[in-house]
Design a protein around this nucleic acid. Structure first.
Length: 498
RNA sequence: GGCGCCGUAGCCAAGUGGUUAGGCAAAGGUUUGCAAAACCUUCAUACACCGGUUCGAAUCCGGUCGGCGCCUCCA
């Protein structure tokens, strides 16, 4: 097998080739913990979770490192607004971040380094850069000198001159005076003695934005990573600056592979607070199962923008999100299928028989799709084929004298295991998942189980008495309430369609 | 201004030189006391527009129009 991934540095798909075959060390830029994780974070970390799962499924011994940026100006500002210390605020949102990631079904990274836990490493890294002539101190600040690094701009594919042009208009006079070159960026920012910070050879201060990743990559993955990832918006300046710092400091390439995921957009506009089109993951979790969001993230290729529309009522209130509605529906179909598979009458199972294509080929299709630049939409297409085939199998056992071959059922079970392992989907208990979904929908419609069940009982009495007019009238009432009835051999069950 | 991405059937979305992607919605069918679910069929000889290369282009090249992103904090 060869896993091919698009590489930002070379701007083309490349075979993923770790330095040591069979082992990989990947570093993904984590969140700055000053607020709840938003849908963009959810997308990003679901994508890297699938990458991690797939690499492991392919037998790669993986070290997955994802940092937490817990030292940052935004944290300082937000903490001040809230009357908390920056440390408290960061700790709180780190906890919330973990909760959201687990809700999404993401496996924990192997190492989750924090900036606050790596101040000595950061200071040492900056000192090294100064010694090598790539950085200079000015009045308590330290800047990286961009012209001292020849390859600057190679990751984001832009010439230094263009950056100078773009940057010069924004710099304050003070900054211009301090910096030797307009593109130079801060490695260490001096602070007043009473401000949050740490002691350093240049005085009290805090690390600059990019240096923490360079220091933490070094410590946890060595000079050269196998893959570095993050959101598209990190290409410049964050990753470009990391490349400059790390490669200048280590005299070695920072990463063998660069991966960046596309944005989440709302109504075709990049999701951002300033546009007021901002959704946190957990506010959507009140409306949808977190796994529905996970599914939604897989419906689009990871490098493309993921747009979701918001439908509003006349008063401008949010009615729903078609993408998540549809994703939840597909997930419901997945769990219903699992439940049907589990409920096949054992007397209908025969020892011999063919395994239907959709089931037999699932593993290979899934693997091929993910090998090819993590093509998750194609993986979901394979899932659709699997679910259809399983339902067909179940359908067969419900016909007169219908049977299902044991090898096909075993293959289906194995396929679901693989689905869980590779995509992290379908891992919940099916009856519990479906029950939770139904509870959520009855609540949203303002009805109770008792409302439904009393009518079902009345309908049963009417049907037993062959009073089909009355029975149909009761069903019509339920339909008006949003309830669908399913008359089965063992009685009537009900659901609320999404 | 510099760099880059995208435009695929009613909607969402893969594919990217020759062979059914997939989903949602809609319609018909199998099944059912009637339904629902499930399954089957149809919508689908779709690829923004104009040129060019080629035996062959949605796919490669050039241009036009439209949408968007990065260049400043951002996943």
């Amino acid at each position: 097998m060869t896993i091919t991934l698009y590489d930002t540095m070379t701007a083309k798909k490349q075979p993923f080739a770790p330095a040591e075959p069979g082992k990989a060390r990947i570093y993904v830029c984590g969140p700055t913990v000053y607020d709840y994780a938003h849908v963009g974070h959810a997308r990003c970390y679901v994508i890297y979770d699938v990458l991690a799962r797939h690499l492991r499924a392919r037998g790669v011994e993986l070290k997955y490192v994802r940092n937490i940026t817990d030292v940052d100006d935004k944290i300082v500002h937000r903490a001040k607004e809230r009357g908390e210390t920056p440390t408290e605020l960061a700790a709180r949102f780190t906890t919330h971040f973990h909760e959201d990631m687990r809700a999404l079904g993401n496996v924990d990274p192997d190492v989750e380094p924090t900036v606050s836990g790596h101040i000595p490493e950061i200071v040492a890294f900056v000192e090294g850069l100064i010694e090598k002539g790539h950085a200079y101190a000015v009045d308590g600040d330290v800047y990286f000198h961009v012209p001292s690094f020849e390859g600057y701009g190679k990751l984001s594919h832009r010439p230094v001159e263009a950056l100078v042009e773009g940057a010069s208009g924004r710099l304050s006079d003070e900054e211009t005076k301090r910096k030797k070159h307009p593109a130079d960026f801060a490695l260490w920012k001096g602070q007043d003695a009473d401000a949050w910070g740490w002691a350093s050879p240049w005085g009290h201060g805090r690390p600059g934005w990019h240096i923490e990743c360079s220091a933490m990559c070094n410590k946890h993955c060595g000079a050269t990573l196998d893959l570095h990832g993050g959101g598209l918006d990190l290409v410049f300046p964050h990753h470009e600056n990391e490349v400059a710092q790390s490669e200048a400091g280590n005299r070695a390439p920072l990463s063998r592979h660069w991966m960046h995921n596309g944005f989440v957009e709302v109504d075709k506009e990049k999701m951002s607070k300033s546009l007021g089109n901002f959704f946190t993951a957990r506010e959507l979790f009140t409306r949808y199962a977190p796994e529905s969001m996970r599914y939604a993230m897989m419906t689009v290729h990871y490098r493309s923008p993921l747009n979701f529309d918001v439908t509003l009522d006349d008063a401008g209130h949010v009615m729903g999100f078609p993408l998540f509605d549809e994703s939840e529906k597909r997930l419901e179909y997945l769990y219903e299928t699992r439940e049907r598979l589990a409920s096949i009458d054992p007397s209908r199972i025969v020892a011999e028989g063919v395994v239907p294509d959709g089931i037999a080929t699932f593993g290979a299709s899934l693997g091929t799709a993910l090998d090819d630049d993590l093509n998750m939409p194609q993986a979901l297409a394979a899932l659709s084929e699997l679910l259809k085939a399983v339902n067909e199998l179940v359908e067969g056992t419900r016909r007169k004298k219908g049977t299902a071959p044991a090898p096909a059922l075993e293959a289906a079970t194995a396929a679901f295991d693989l689905l869980g392992r590779e995509l992290g989907l379908g891992l919940a208990n099916a009856p519990m998942f479906l029950r939770a979904l139904r509870d959520k929908r009855t609540k949203a419609r303002g009805i109770t189980d008792a409302d439904v069940e009393s009518r079902i009982a009345a309908r049963k009495a009417a049907r037993d008495g062959k009073d089909f007019g009355k029975a149909d009238q009761l069903r019509d009432e339920l339909v008006a309430m949003g309830v669908e009835l399913m008359d089965g051999p063992t009685g009537t069950t009900w659901r609320i369609p999404g």
